[in-house]
Design a protein around this nucleic acid. Structure first.
Lengths: 111, 111
DNA sequence: ACATCATCCGCATAGCCGCACGGGTATCGG
DNA sequence: CCGATACCCGTGCGGCTATGCGGATGATGT
């Protein structure tokens, strides 16, 4: 197996930065919603996730700043979608797999 | 694609909880180290990752509380390893993929 | 028995982060 | 032109958390 060196602290931070973007309930659900529905506006996302529009707006702002989502403006409505270069492994393996896991829980729930 | 319902807030939390465990440089590197080397003690981990022993101890405590790692005591030395039931998708797809990504960065820019 | 070492624990602190709030901008309907 | 809508932004606050420090525990060596 992996004969590679361990990640440096710097690489650890990079890893973390991308991961911590999904390590928030709102953002994770935003990303998943956009993975499923392809394109949604802020208001609909707020309704769909039962979250305030501010929270959605803030979450999307963060994700956009990180380049994970893009927006398209149509009139006064802003539609969001996953960015063109949204990391495929993240999408395929992490997002969906973890959603799976979050439904069929791991048996380790400990105190 | 769009066949499933969106994750509830509760499921979002569950998703997040497992994810946020890796969303910390120290913990991510700890997990990766244990994925590579199989079994390590606190002191060696501290040296390998250039982190204080306290930080390592704390990180491992958190991971242990979550059931992601286990420890084996041999004399006064405590050896840690990934837990038996360490979520395989997490290991296969997330940990390794993300380490990959952290080395061959995504071109994240913003407008 | 005593000193030493590896590790854990409790506590305190400092930094970060998500979110609500108030105010702003662009767009649409009438 | 005017009010309403959809959204964005800067700011501030409350809560969480990583980490350092002092002390405790238990194993080891002499």
């Amino acid at each position: 197996m992996a004969r590679e060196r361990l990640p440096s602290a710097e690489e650890g931070d990079r890893l973390t930065s991308v991961l911590s973007l999904m390590a928030d309930p709102t953002r994770a659900r935003l990303l998943y919603a956009l993975d499923v529905v392809e394109e949604l506006c802020v208001g609909d996302l707020a309704i769909a996730l039962s979250v305030s529009e501010d929270a959605v707006s803030y979450g999307l702002r963060v994700l956009r700043t990180a380049g994970l989502v893009t927006r398209r403006k149509e009139g006064r409505i802003v539609y969001y979608r996953l960015a063109e270069g949204f990391p495929e492994p993240l999408r395929q393996h992490c997002l969906r797999q973890l959603i799976e896991m979050s439904r069929a829980p791991i048996e380790d729930d400990d105190s």
